[in-house]
Every structure is written in structure tokens, then in C-alpha cells.
């Protein structure tokens, strides 16, 4: 074992320099040319940063497209899911309460039309997106509060729907922050 201690220490030091200093600095250096400069892309409204494009935020007010439930209240200082199992009785009560709340805020919506994403928490607690269906089911409520026609809002959601990758792979989605920024700009 003794003969191997020297090489072990020396190799470790050399590799620390290569892997933990040079490598991340090279990545950080090249990433300064990426959108957001490797610090995360932000979205600005009237000169004020209102959020990160990819990090979801809480929208609970009726005049906005509401984001999904979150186990960490969208505080991106941390992250987390509920980790509730599918058969957990208390968890199912929480979901039932969310359904009731949603129905109360969206009169006229039928329960069987609510997509489950609106009453279940995401994995990160920071999900930035909704499915197109999850956004559109909220249109009647927002149209009424804002006095904007449902057709116009439908069009807005369509404009902000990002289709599958190359049109072939993965789900369609609507970025909640961007669609709400656009919503505020409508009138």
C-alpha cells in the first residue's frame, strides 16, 4: 500500500486542477456567449427584471394564468416536490381541496375537463409551464375579469404555445410567465 500513497496524493492534486478548476472555468468562459451569459435568462418588463424565463413563479391571482401547485411555493432559493405517494389519503384530500378551489374560481368549468396538472404539484416546485389545455381552461375566468374577449385570449395562448421539439418529440407547453407578461401588455 505504501508504494501507492505517493502516486495517489500526487495524481489527486493534478486531477483536481484539471477537473475542478480548469474544466468548470472553460465551461463558464464559453457560456458567457450563451443567452443570459451563463447566469440564467431573465425577463424584463419596463426596465424591471420580473423573473427568470425558465424558473416558474407563483401566479395565484384570478387575473393571471395560474401556475401549477408547488410544494415550495415557487421559492427558487430551494426546490422540491411533494413526494406524496399516489395512494396517500391526506394527499388525495389536498387534491380534492384544490379541485374545489378551482371550480369556485372558474364557474362554468366542468370537473371532468380540469387537467390534473392544475391540481398536482410539479417535481421541482418550479415548473415554468402549463399544457395548452391547462392554460385554455382558465380563459373564461380571465376574459371576464379583464374584459378581453375569449377569442383574443385563445389567440394569445396559441401564440405562446411552444410545440414539440422539431415538431416531433415531446409535449407542447405554454410558458406561464411569458404569457402573463403578454397578457398585461394587451390593453
Amino acid at each position: 500500500m505504501k508504494t501507492h500513497i505517493g502516486p495517489a496524493i500526487r495524481l489527486t492534486v493534478v486531477l483536481l486542477v484539471l477537473l475542478s478548476v480548469i474544466y468548470p472555468l472553460v465551461v463558464a468562459g464559453i457560456a458567457t456567449f450563451a443567452p443570459g451569459g451563463g447566469k440564467g435568462e431573465t425577463i424584463t418588463v419596463n426596465g424591471r427584471v420580473v423573473g427568470y424565463k425558465r424558473v416558474g413563479q407563483a401566479f395565484t391571482e384570478d387575473r393571471y394564468f395560474n401556475s401549477r401547485p408547488s410544494a415550495v411555493d415557487y421559492n427558487a432559493a430551494g426546490s422540491g416536490g411533494s413526494n406524496k405517494g399516489p395512494s396517500n389519503a391526506n394527499y388525495l384530500k389536498t387534491v380534492q381541496a384544490r379541485i374545489d378551489t378551482f371550480l369556485a374560481h372558474n364557474p362554468g368549468v366542468r370537473k371532468e375537463d380540469i387537467p390534473s396538472e392544475l391540481v398536482t404539484a410539479s417535481g421541482s416546485g418550479l415548473d415554468p409551464d402549463l399544457s395548452p389545455a391547462g392554460a385554455k381552461i382558465q380563459i373564461a375566468r380571465i376574459a371576464k375579469i379583464r374584459g378581453i374577449s375569449a377569442d383574443r385570449l385563445n389567440q394569445l395562448v396559441d401564440e405562446h404555445t411552444e410545440g414539440p421539439l422539431l415538431g416531433l418529440f415531446g409535449p407542447s407547453k405554454v410558458n406561464v410567465l411569458q404569457v402573463n407578461v403578454a397578457l398585461d401588455a394587451l390593453k
Binding site: K84, L92, A121, G123, D127, D129, P171, K173
Partner: peptide, 24 residues
Amino acid sequence: NPAIANLGVAQPLGSMEGKEIRLG
């Protein structure tokens, strides 16, 4: 999740607790 189906909402995207919209 069958227990969510019993609550009467739709699951067009499958089981979504703990999952992200952009991934599915």
C-alpha cells in the same frame, strides 16, 4: 393515478404529481 381519476378530473397527460410539463 387511479385515485386521481376517482376524484373526477381528467388526466390527459398521465400521472402528473411530481412531474414537469416540459418533459411529460
